[in-house]
Design a protein around this nucleic acid. Sequence first.
DNA 1: AACCTGACTTCGG
DNA 2: TCCGAAGCCAGGT
Length: 103
Amino acid sequence: MPTQFSEDVIRVLKAIPRGSVATYGQVARLAGNPRAARQVVRLLNAYSSAEELPWHRVINKQGRISLKRGSGYELQKSLLVQEGIRFDKADNIDLSKYQWRPE
DNA sequence: AACCTGACTTCGG
DNA sequence: TCCGAAGCCAGGT
């Protein structure tokens, strides 16, 4: 059985709207544990295929994709671009513009 | 049963 | 501002 925290993380992930992004820490914070960013990573790996999670809408705090080139980076970027998110020349996303701000 | 690892952040000095 | 340590925790070795 998943922990309460895990369930909350899943719930938060599913709530990220199309066209917005959230950071690992932000998801952890919204789920109740600001310091569990790494756990969010684990959950993404564990459930992104089983559950239908918008895993590509989660990026790091620097506004960059954390995946390595050749290991998903390109896929994630294309999925985000499809949702209308723009990358600058350094492949950075403007968080002030695209970061999800739950009400 | 330790020890390492990971698509990360935050904290304290 | 910079840097290391701590926090998170289940799954793999």
